[in-house]
Design a protein around this nucleic acid. Structure first.
Lengths: 245, 245
DNA sequence: CGGCTGCTTGATCGCTCTCAAATGGGGTGG
DNA sequence: CCACCCCATTTGAGAGCGATCAAGCAGCCG
């Protein structure tokens, strides 16, 4: 891990470029973006390293530049929950935006990743100077609220198979990469991870993926999943049980 | 249902009084509060009537003055989910704070209720003039995000009995009223409602409440629940299976 | 090449849903 | 004030989804 202010001109340019596309900073002009970038520190983590851990004082907000971070929680009983995966351009560790003292979750890089980070004070200062950031933050949080509520409904009302299908489709949307066999989910995902995303066990996930593999809907390996027939997954997810004949 | 601007001096005074305690408007001085109150319209709904329905254009934000509103969703398959119950001083219909076009849920009075409402434009104007409102809104949304995530974890990892225990304890905290037998949940809650809060069926809820009634942990009737031994519920919720001897 | 980590698969158990039917309390209308 | 009806609730029986327990297997990294 490295942690440095944004010194080099090269990085500065890169960062401004990136920040222009970040929803949290939408509406800022080039000068304001540069100022924002100046206030950031730059972090690099290898796969497996953490940006922050559950229970740490919530002191910073992050924007992914490159890579993928897994945001997950452990319950008091020791069960794991994957809250989401964030990719380039997305904001995470949003806790610093509101009052919480501690991170309620852990943010761990699943591939080699780079991110920008702002201290709580820096964010407060930026929001003060550019009130539009607070409005953007509302949109970001609102979006997250909407997503988690959708997933809550799913979990409350739907069978495991469908939940897994939806989780895969979501991953495809977020990190799908066309390969010759179909669409690859472009970062390592284990059966365990999928289980923690959908509120089930790795055993059940394994069984279901195996059955899909037999039907040639997917093709998977160690922490690696390729969707060959996305349409079939959609059918499962939406209960168009037309058996994709 | 009535819908009027805040005309009478009486109401105006009441409203300002109330708004001072609302988190969304914390930090505003008396003058700003009065200005805020002036921009509101005043609504009264009887039990069963709706403030807004899922799918309606999301045009207004509400603050409860009195009563209780049930915020619930229906899934495409027709399953109901109770998102939360909001009481006096709480904000609901927060959708207008961020970009969503439509209400993702329905807000229905469960007891005779009164609320103040602001149009999307009014809110935007107020936030512009008093940027602190946007910061408060971040806190409100952040809090909601935290709550829903907790419930998501529960749903993903815990058995029905414990989820129901937690739901009841939450209701006690929100709307518990001391009565001679214990603590009454001070608005009508059916087994169906509890089921929709915890992702289960009314049958299972009924069975579990019956068993608790036998153990004299609760005492309940038609849409009416009194908790007689809150400690016992906590034991169930937290897995201190000391059988509250 | 060896060990670790992730994956597969079988067998069984039990929680919870589903379907069915009966009961009873409360509110409404006469 | 009473009778009726509706709706919330209770309770039973049975099925089945998915968890749990238990091995064994196979890539991959060191």
């Amino acid at each position: 891990m490295k942690k440095t202010p944004l010194k080099t001109a090269q990085r500065q340019v890169e960062a401004v470029d990136m920040l222009g596309g970040v929803r949290l900073f939408r509406g800022l002009d080039a000068g304001q973006l540069a100022e924002t970038a100046t206030a950031a520190s730059w972090l690099k983590k290898d796969a497996g390293q953490r940006f922050f851990a559950q229970g740490d004082p919530a002191c910073r907000l992050f924007v992914m530049l490159r890579g993928r971070v897994k945001v997950s929680q452990v319950t008091p009983e020791g069960h794991q929950i994957v809250v989401r995966y964030a990719g380039a351009g997305e904001t995470f560790g949003c806790v610093s935006l509101y009052g919480a003292r501690e991170y309620p979750a852990t943010g761990e890089a699943v591939t080699s990743s780079e991110a920008l980070a702002w201290s709580r004070e820096a964010i407060a200062r930026l929001m003060n100077r550019n009130p539009v950031i607070a409005l953007n933050a509302l949109e970001v949080l609102g979006r997250e609220l909407f997503d988690i509520r959708s997933r809550y409904s799913e979990l409350a009302t739907e069978r495991v198979e469908r939940r897994i299908a939806r989780a895969l489709l979501r991953l495809v949307r977020q990190a799908g990469r066309k390969v010759d066999m179909g669409v690859l989910i472009d970062f390592p995902v284990s059966r365990q991870d999928l289980g923690e995303m959908t509120g089930t066990t790795l055993h059940t996930v394994s069984r279901i993926l195996s059955s899909w593999e037999q039907k040639e809907i997917i093709s998977s390996g160690r922490r690696r999943i390729v969707i060959r027939l996305p349409h079939a997954l959609v059918s499962i997810a939406e209960d168009l049980d037309d058996e994709y004949s």
